[in-house]
Design a binder for these strands. Structure first.
Lengths: 176, 176
DNA sequence: TATTGTTATACTCTATAACTATA
DNA sequence: TATAGTTATAGAGTATAACAATA
């Protein structure tokens, strides 16, 4: 408090003052009403923010969430069919075609001919795909640590468990 | 058990047996690897399932999540500006225009002229909008109860709190 | 007859640039 | 010069129908 007025009294010293003018948006903060207590709303907000962080982190690698998860899935299930991979990721088959086209175009994954069924492909990672996935793993781990910072290990585990239960609750069950 | 074989012995009674043939997809269950432990992945899965349940529940009312939240927000902030409403909901202004167009076309909300600023609108609910919102509140409450069933009140509260913290972690902070 | 992968297509959500009319 | 609202547009993500090749 005293130092400030003292410094102001020596105007010709070699100092800089950087002022960032944030344009005053003058936005009224609105009352969100019951929205924050609606789970679907909170889920949506969190998911959008988390994907934005993921995309920013993986911009260098040019990997979107679906592409990253596809590479992970192929690595964990070498030789699997396209339809099984799409099903596991919750992606419709026609949409997964375009995803695989792109991964193949970038030489990250490969559609090898099926061993027994000539209709089906056996999905594989290329060497470049394995290398990129290794780099992505690091970046995504950092991303995951960033979005869960301040949460204890047990809180994070509980969050994952609660999300799984909510997903289960919201998923229509088919008769066995 | 006995009754069944007994009934089979009387083939000409006026009974029906309805058999639903579920096509055996013969899908291999793939190994999801580290995906289930990634928060972003769990968030996305849960959010998709929850929105699907919301949309199924609100199909009768023809209300999508963004429309419902907009009606709620307008009701809680009668006379608010369009830009403030969009900002509060995390919707880009140009996209909120189309949303309001649709609500106005269905006579659920209204763009009244601004009191002091002739550039701005004052958003209001119509009577029909208030009535529909009241019905939607019931449907969405049931939806919310459905997706959180099996969770205790404290678990649900904790889930909301953890989601808010994750959203905050993932949101880039601007310097004040 | 059913499954695998594919094409074509459509609809929603999201994002950006550029315009107008007011301030 | 900046803000409120708008238009136009583009890009993802998601969904379905219909087809060819194979089982």
């Amino acid at each position: 408090m005293h130092s400030h007025s003292h410094e102001r009294a020596r105007p010709f010293e070699n100092r800089f003052e950087i002022v960032i003018m944030v344009p005053n948006k003058s936005r009224e903060k609105l009352d969100l009403g019951p929205l924050p207590s609606l789970l679907g709303y909170a889920l949506r907000r969190a998911q959008l923010a988390v994907f934005a962080d993921f995309n920013a982190a993986c911009e260098k690698l040019q990997l979107r969430p679906a592409q990253f998860s596809a590479l992970l899935l192929i690595e964990a299930n070498l030789g699997c069919k396209q339809s099984d991979a799409a099903e596991a990721l919750g992606i419709m088959q026609p949409n997964f075609v375009a995803l695989m086209d792109e991964l193949e175009r970038r030489d990250l994954a490969r559609r090898a001919p099926g061993k027994t069924d000539r209709r089906a492909y056996a999905l594989e990672l290329t060497d470049a795909g394995g290398t990129l996935l290794e780099r992505a793993r690091t970046v995504v781990s950092e991303h995951d640590a960033r979005i869960t910072r301040g949460l204890s290990a047990s809180e994070t585990a509980l969050l994952l468990q609660l999300l799984a239960r909510v997903e289960q609750n919201a998923t229509p069950q088919v008769a066995p």
